[in-house]
């Protein structure tokens, strides 16, 4: 009945159960009593209202019992929470970087991943860092959450107890694509983890295309994917050289996505709007991207074909 996905989840669920059961007893009990009162004492001839105003004994009882119950809730809530703040010193450390609107997992030595991949039954400590505004790092299945605040070194830790994929969501509002700021935790066995880690290490040694670095540093990838998925803007996959339907001066026309078109789109994005997208979503990058950066981007885009 209680989630065992992480070492803290069952503890949290027990507190949920405790508070919900007590709450339901009160809610249903009082509601039934109110309905009973409304029916039993409804106004009719011959039934006079009683005129009592106090009953000290009763009032003491219904003050003391709630005090005891809320203190118990406080206590259990605290006990289940306390381990969340005590990360074991030998926990595996991963740095989580939150930025508008993506999560990056930094495994050290220049190795980064878009997914959090961790081995089963090992304590993991996540150091939460923000590059811009507040974010919230939330893994619902594990019952862990902590804000990612710029200038603060927040952290969380847990032990994953089941192999599987789990959602990561952003819970602190961070602007336009807050609701798309998602990722996944992949819990794998030790063997698979080591293999994945070795691949990551290998990949990190291959220098990245210059164009990709420009795209990432300029923030283009927040709205344009390179893997074909739809974000705020069109994807860059199979983009270069393809025929695009755009709306210019309120009329629909077709153009080929070549250097000239890309240059126009970057420097005056509202002149030609890709069909199906809205005006004003993209700002002009006139003083941000230089001609030579654009060339690097174009070279890179040419490689993004199956």
């Amino acid at each position: 009945m209680f989630s065992e996905a992480s070492n803290v989840s069952a503890g949290v669920d027990k507190v949920f159960a405790f508070i919900i059961i007590i709450s339901l007893i009160f809610l249903i009990g009082i509601s039934v009593f109110i309905v009973y009162t409304l029916v039993r004492f409804r106004r009719k001839k011959g039934l006079k209202a009683m005129q009592f105003t106090d009953n000290i004994k009763l009032e003491i009882i219904w003050t003391v019992i709630p005090i005891i119950l809320v203190l118990l809730m406080f206590y259990y809530g605290w006990i289940a929470f306390a381990p969340m703040r005590k990360a074991p010193p030998d926990a595996m450390q991963v740095k989580v970087i939150g930025k508008m609107w993506e999560w990056i997992f930094d495994y050290g030595n220049g190795m980064t991943s878009k997914e959090l991949v961790i081995p089963l039954n090992k304590a993991v400590r996540l150091d939460l860092v923000s590059e811009d505004v507040n974010h919230g790092f939330f893994i619902p299945a594990f019952r862990v959450k902590e804000d990612v605040v710029p200038g603060y070194n927040n952290y969380m830790w847990f032990i994953p107890q089941y192999i599987g994929n789990y959602e990561i969501l952003c819970t602190q509002y961070c602007g336009l694509l807050h609701s798309n700021m998602m990722s996944k935790v992949r819990v794998v066995d030790q063997e698979e983890y080591e293999k994945w880690y070795a691949d990551l290490e290998k990949a990190s040694k291959i220098p990245e295309a210059e164009g990709l670095i420009v795209l990432r540093n300029t923030g283009c990838l927040a709205c344009h994917s390179i893997d074909g998925s739809k974000l705020v803007g069109p994807t860059f996959k199979d983009f270069y050289g393809s025929e695009r339907t755009v709306i210019a001066n309120n009329t629909e026309t077709k153009v080929i996505a070549d250097d000239a078109f890309i240059s126009r789109s970057v420097y005056s994005p509202d002149a030609e709007i890709a069909a199906g997208y809205n005006k004003g979503l993209m700002k002009s990058y006139t003083d941000v991207l230089k001609e030579e950066d654009l060339k690097k981007i174009n070279d890179y885009l040419k490689t993004l074909h199956e």
């Binding site: 949290v12 507190v15 949920f16 709450s23 605290w78 969340m84 919230g136 019952r143 959450k145 819970t171």
Partner: peptide, 16 residues
């Protein structure tokens, strides 16, 4: 429901 949010352990899950 405020009690669930007041308790530290359950707050973590339902916060925001």
């Amino acid at each position: 429901t405020g009690l669930i949010q007041g308790a530290l352990a359950t707050n973590i899950q339902v916060h925001d």
